[in-house]
Amino acid sequence: MHPASLVTDGKGAIWLNEVHCSGSESKLLNCAYNDDSTNCRHNEDVGIHCFLSCSTEDQGGLRISAGIAVNQGRLEINYKGEWGTICYKNFDNVEAEVACKQLGYCSGIMHPPRITHNGDGVVWLNDVTCSGSESRLLNCSFDINIEQCSHRDDVGVHCFLSCSPENEGGLRISAGIAVNQGRLEINYKGEWGTICYKNFDNVDAEVACKQLGYCSGIMHPPRITNNGDGVVWLNDVTCSGSESRLLNCSFDINIEQCSHHDDVGVHCFLSCSPENEGSLRIMSGFAVNQGRLDINYKGEWGTVCSRDFENVDAEVACKQLGYWYV
Rank of each mutant, 00 (worst) to 15 (best):
V316F: 04
G23E: 13
D58S: 07
M283S: 15
Y325L: 08
H158S: 06
L6E: 15
N187K: 15
E243M: 10
Q102V: 08
F251Y: 15
L247I: 13
G299V: 06
S271N: 00
A66Q: 12
C268V: 13
S279G: 15
L29W: 15
H117M: 08
D229C: 15
N126G: 08
D36G: 01
W192M: 09
I282Q: 06
G182P: 12
Y323C: 07
A317F: 12
V128H: 06
V70G: 09
L137D: 04
G60K: 04
G84F: 02
G10P: 00
L234C: 12
H117W: 05
C100K: 06
E147D: 14
T129Y: 11
Q102N: 12
S141M: 09
K298V: 08
E97M: 08
R172I: 09
C140N: 02
S216G: 10
R292H: 11
V207S: 05
T238L: 14
H158L: 13
G265A: 00
H42P: 07
T129H: 11
S133T: 12
F269R: 03
N126D: 15
T56A: 13
C318T: 00
I173Y: 01
I282Y: 04
G119N: 07
I146P: 06
S65F: 03
E168A: 01
P112R: 13
A32C: 06
V123G: 03
V304S: 07
C40D: 03
V232F: 08
I77K: 11
S107G: 08
L293P: 00
A205Y: 04
G241W: 06
H111P: 01
G81W: 14
G228N: 00
E147P: 09
D153S: 05
D154M: 00
D35R: 07
W301T: 00
A99V: 02
N145R: 13
S55Y: 05
D252L: 08
S26H: 11
D153H: 07
E275R: 09
N90V: 11
N180L: 12
D58N: 13
G12P: 03
F309H: 10
G132N: 03
N276Q: 07
H2P: 05
V288G: 04
A175Q: 14
C100W: 05
E191S: 13
Y88L: 07
G170F: 11
L171A: 00
I177M: 15
L246T: 13
N34T: 08
A66C: 11
L293Y: 14
E256Y: 06
C87Y: 01
A99T: 01
E76T: 00
A13K: 13
V157R: 01
D252Y: 02
C50D: 15
I218R: 14
G241L: 11
M110Y: 09
I115A: 09
D143P: 06
C215G: 01
D143S: 15
